[in-house]
Design a protein around this nucleic acid. Structure first.
Lengths: 254, 254
DNA sequence: TAGTGGTCTAGACCACTCG
DNA sequence: GAGTGGTCTAGACCACTAA
């Protein structure tokens, strides 16, 4: 919040260790990371410009950028072209039980938030049709949203539902932004996650935008299918997580 | 296998698109990636030196390095200091059912391999004791190994077993490098994976070494616990996967 | 218009590996 | 000793953003 240049100058005051031990850029990254983690650099703070930081640390912009790049990959910083480099909200690891509802799955007493990006009706493409056991071109409901933990965006999801099963999706969802409520209102009291696939990748433009990450940043991706108690697929869910922000917990219940 | 400089020169022959569309380094990376994926660059091939490639593409070493870095993060290349940059074996996505045995979990008819790094007896530290429900300092068996799919190293694991339950671990394991056989020989015919935790991180020196990745490369990490049919914990398993080499599939069986 | 981050150049020195 | 990748310097131009 305060003048970050003062802080950075303070970080730069300590001399670097001998170069054959740890590289300069790594030492710079370590110092900035420490400042992020212990709160000296706060959430949403804007760092000084790269030129200023280069001068403060007595190095070239290239060296500063090498350090900043690592911290962006770690999910601690986000760079916005023409604007600046910002501290991302606490990327501490959250444990999410991916067999449960998102809010239930967070371990510990965190504050959960939801931001609905869009909710439209559409038709199923190949992947979606296969996952939901419907025909290509069949009507579907498409819900884009992000989930927040302690004001940090940790999850961006793209959910697809069979349109025929949820005639009143929009009105029910509008009440509390709750998919579970929509299920209940349509007579689906019980359902289960039958399969989860987890893979890694690199943030595409839309993912970087949704999660507040720099482009090319490594991410986790999950693909999951929910079915009703009778086995009917009711949801196809594709999600993206910042690589280091989350720990997915998958339990085999008896 | 053949002269990779000839190939790289061929890749460099095509002119670059206007710079305001896609950056030079990205175009270089895309061309090399395409050559890796369609076999023009084969597994274990060594690329020309960065100076040679820079000259071939008509750019600076910095620009070449930016392209190579991305491909290293993607798991397509591995750089070895003082030696060269090498093409990693097919990092195509493998689907692994993490509730099953490794070999059973691979989807499709791939060739599975095992390399045992070390097998020693030791004592449990805090994490391991907690996971296995034994006391800190209790005897454990520690097994380090890597798994290969079609000659590509896709998994490095660090398994810990309660020493008291497997008196003849070493002799039984030596027969076929099979943990399942060790279980059977000690009367554990049935067991299950009760919990899997998946998270992301960046390759530590030992992980980079084991998987043939460049340092700082993003990776997937899994932590899992197996129990015998009666609920007794029998294995604590920590593993590392190249980020883009695998898709973990976790099914909830009825 | 001023400042920002993204890209690129043309050099340099170093530690490391291998023959 | 020759070649390699890792690091670092000192510049430059660009597209983008906000005041």
């Amino acid at each position: 919040m305060a003048d970050t240049l003062v802080l950075i100058t303070a970080l730069a005051a300590r001399p670097f260790r001998a170069q054959n031990e740890i590289s300069i850029w790594q030492q710079i990254a370590d110092r900035i990371e420490a400042a992020c983690l212990d709160g000296r650099l706060g959430s949403m703070d804007r760092l000084p410009g790269e030129n200023h930081m280069a001068e403060a640390f007595g190095v070239t912009r290239v060296t500063i950028r090498r350090a900043l790049t690592q911290l962006q990959h770690k999910g601690l910083l986000q760079a916005r072209k023409g604007v600046g480099v910002f501290v991302r909200p606490v990327p501490l690891k959250y444990s999410v039980d991916h067999g449960k509802h998102f809010a239930d799955g967070i371990e510990g007493g965190a504050v959960i938030g939801t931001r609905t990006i869009s909710l439209i009706r559409n038709v199923a493409n190949g992947d979606e049709a296969k996952a939901l056991s419907i025909e290509i071109g069949a009507p579907v409901i498409r819900l884009l949203r992000t989930r927040l933990v302690n004001d940090a965006t940790v999850y961006s999801s793209d959910k697809v539902f069979p349109g025929r099963l949820f005639q009143a999706f929009e009105t029910e969802y509008a009440l509390r932004e709750s998919v579970r409520d929509v299920y209940l209102a349509h007579g689906v009291a019980d359902y289960r996650r039958v399969e989860t696939r987890v893979s890694g990748g690199f943030a595409l433009p839309q993912e970087a935008e949704a999660l507040g990450l720099t482009l090319h940043t490594p991410v986790l991706r999950s693909v999951a299918i929910n079915t009703a108690a009778d086995g009917t697929p009711i949801e196809f869910n594709r999600g993206t997580w910042p690589l280091t922000a989350v720990e997915l917990v998958l339990k085999n219940q008896e």
